[in-house]
Design a protein around this nucleic acid. Structure first.
Lengths: 152, 152
DNA sequence: CCTTGGTCGTTCCAGTTTGAACTACTGGAC
DNA sequence: GTCCAGTAGTTCAAACTGGAACGACCAAGG
């Protein structure tokens, strides 16, 4: 006997959720790579840092936002360091720790990349939605994220 | 002067959208790998094939659903072929073409993997949403997918 | 026929991702 | 002090990824 499978509407929602995530990511990725030479994860790192005091953050805090695994973050920060956009220094209060911080060039690069990125986000995400759809989507997403954050 | 940046609510929605996609994908991926030894893309291929007549589909049709690039699909099908779950044969009506089809073992594997996968999808996605939230989410996703499918 | 522009699928490559070690350190218990 | 379980971050191997280049084929026009 089959377990209760997804009904037609559920299936469409689930597949749509996966497809939308994939497609949106791909478009954003391409825009960033083309216009700024950054990958999406790299851009995310710059943004997180720019929102932190002094533009600095512990590695763990950076990874905690679930963009990638610890090792993935290590790799990306190394790339950004090679590009001169980010600098590592050891954490003064914990000798195990490392804090990554934006360099001047990092700030410049981020400011230069932001408008193009923003335009793409609007184009592929917000512009396609009515106000009501956006509200509904936001509500659902909020519920999802809240739940996922709890159960790990 | 700054371009019109996302307001607080928009930002939360956008970041949530990315985070939800990432987290859900990770959990599904882990479940499949652990319980069935399949990656999510591989499972997707099996599902698409199982929904096609005779359990067979042209490579292009498989790739068209935006799971991966052409080369990525080629790779995954090769992996599935090595595992004995999928078989390739040349397309009778087009000598360039290749049709991939489920083997008996492929059907068995898929049927065995489906319940666990379904349970995980319910757990991380549907169970966290009220009926109203699900409707809103479905509506928004539908709009997004419709729009993205058009503009490539 | 024979081009010619296009499609199909694979292969190659360089970049990226992941989990599993591994080292170095922390902070509490004793 | 000295354990010791746990955490921070890096490094490694193995897998996966997308794009570009490729050979094979189709199909429309002359």
């Amino acid at each position: 006997m089959e377990p209760d499978w997804l009904d037609e509407s559920e299936l469409k929602t689930w597949e749509g959720f996966l497809a939308a995530g994939t497609m949106v990511n791909r478009l954003v990725e391409q825009q960033l790579k083309q216009d700024a030479g950054l990958s999406h994860p790299q851009y995310e790192v710059l943004v997180r840092l720019s929102n932190a005091p002094e533009g600095e953050l512990r590695m763990t805090e950076l990874a905690g936002v679930a963009l990638t695994s610890k090792s993935g973050l290590s790799y990306q920060v190394t790339q950004l360091e090679k590009a001169g956009l980010v600098r590592r220094r050891s954490c003064p209060t914990d000798d195990r720790g490392v804090v990554a911080g934006l360099t001047d060039l990092g700030w410049v690069k981020l400011r230069a990349a932001a408008p193009g990125h923003l335009a793409m986000v609007r184009e592929v995400f917000f512009d396609g939605l009515t106000k009501a759809q956006l509200e509904g989507l936001a509500d659902g997403i909020g519920a999802l994220v809240g739940r996922l954050r709890d159960e790990g």
